[in-house]
């Protein structure tokens, strides 16, 4: 098996908002190999975005943070590395796609000059060669009439076209990894389908690895090889996407999946979901952070935080739960828990 291109080990991020500190990410480990897609799934406040951006120095200005643990790109440590060096590694090796293409472009500059900027900086191309590269990149991402559109301003493109242009920008320096943070959340369904198709095709063709941050289980089902489910700053379940989505072990994963209306739902029937609200990270408590919303909770859940450990009945699947409902159901198929 090839070496991981991006690897996190015991990664932690503390954020310092106006008052106090928030342990937004805690002890997170995963690895991403070339050509693979790892989806990080979670709801707001789960830490999925902070985990992916903070170690790379990409939190918005003004947000002060403290990163511990390790994040390595092709074996090179990024945590604690001076900004300038980190920017070099990032610029040459990692491309980014964000949720909102409009706010990711400079509204005052033409699209083409922004798309070719990484190539200009990291590959040392001449201005003319960079312009040709921009046309080539925009054509590659399916932007029709690219030669004319490179001279447009971002607001002159539709949402879908802007997202294509942002993907082109992410590809400009021929990165090994693309980090896509909710890449299709702001798009309409039919445009989302186009963009996901494009991402899959590019990954195939260019052999890139994809770190896909999303809340959309359907996107995970279609795209991901592996999935890590985050809750309250920690990974609560991790494994091959098919195993986790078909046979989730962690009660949170189960609740999250149950929240998605199934295709065979009957109109007018009540929705299944999770009770309560996501935890407040400012108020750290002992035990399992999910226990108050959990239908399976037992006594130790209040005092002891469950470690992320192998789910014995499913290969490569790990879950942070004292109960392990999947194992219980496997051992006692008649007594299905709630």
């Amino acid at each position: 098996m090839s070496a991981p291109v991006l690897e996190a080990e015991d990664l932690g991020v503390r954020l310092y908002p106006s008052a106090g500190a928030v342990h937004a990410v805690n002890g997170v480990s995963w690895s991403l190999r070339p050509g693979r897609t790892l989806a990080i799934v979670g709801e707001s406040g789960s830490g999925k975005t902070v985990m992916s951006l903070a170690p790379l120095g990409l939190l918005p200005p003004g947000v002060s943070s403290d990163v511990t643990g390790s994040l390595k790109f092709e074996g090179r440590e990024l945590v604690g590395t001076p900004d300038e060096e980190r920017a070099r590694v990032r610029g040459a090796g990692i491309g980014f796609i964000f949720q909102d293409p409009l706010s990711s472009f400079n509204p005052m500059r033409r699209v083409g000059s922004q798309v070719d900027e990484p190539a200009l900086i990291h590959e040392g191309l001449s201005r003319r060669a960079a312009r040709e590269r921009a046309v080539e990149l925009l054509s590659m991402v399916g932007l029709s009439d690219a030669r004319r559109r490179i001279d447009m301003y971002p607001h002159e493109l539709s949402g879908g076209m802007r997202q294509r242009a942002m993907i082109a920008m992410a590809l400009a320096a021929s990165p090994k990894v693309i980090i896509a943070d909710e890449p299709t959340t702001a798009l309409d369904a039919t445009v989302q389908a186009q963009i996901l198709e494009l991402l899959m095709e590019l990954r195939e063709r260019l052999g890139m690895a994809l770190l896909l941050i999303t809340h959309d289980i359907g996107v995970v089902a279609g795209m991901a090889d592996d999935v890590a489910v985050m809750y309250a700053g920690r990974i609560v379940e991790h494994g091959p996407a098919r195993a986790v989505l078909k046979h989730p072990d962690h009660p949170y994963t189960r609740g999250l999946l149950a929240s998605v209306p199934p295709p065979d739902a009957l109109p007018g029937t009540r929705f299944r979901g999770l009770p309560g609200t996501p935890p407040d990270l400012m108020a750290v408590t002992a035990g399992c952070p999910f226990r108050e919303r959990c239908a399976y909770a037992i006594e130790p859940c209040a005092t002891r935080r469950p470690p992320l450990e192998p789910v014995t009945v499913s290969r490569d699947q790990r879950s942070a739960c004292h109960v392990h409902p999947l194992v219980v159901e496997h051992d006692q198929p008649a007594e299905v828990a709630p």
Binding site: S158, G160, A189, T190, Q192, A193, Q194, L196, E197, D216, I217, G218, V219, V220, A221, G222, A241, R242, L245, K246, L257, V260, P262, P263
Partner: peptide, 26 residues
């Protein structure tokens, strides 16, 4: 038909086996 086929479903087997109507144009 296009709209419904565009919406991803949470079942990986179903999601990966079905065809989509990918609309072109604006």
């Amino acid at each position: 038909t296009a709209l419904l086929s565009a919406v991803p479903v949470a079942d990986p087997d179903l999601e990966r086996s079905r065809s989509r109507v990918i609309l072109t144009g604006e």
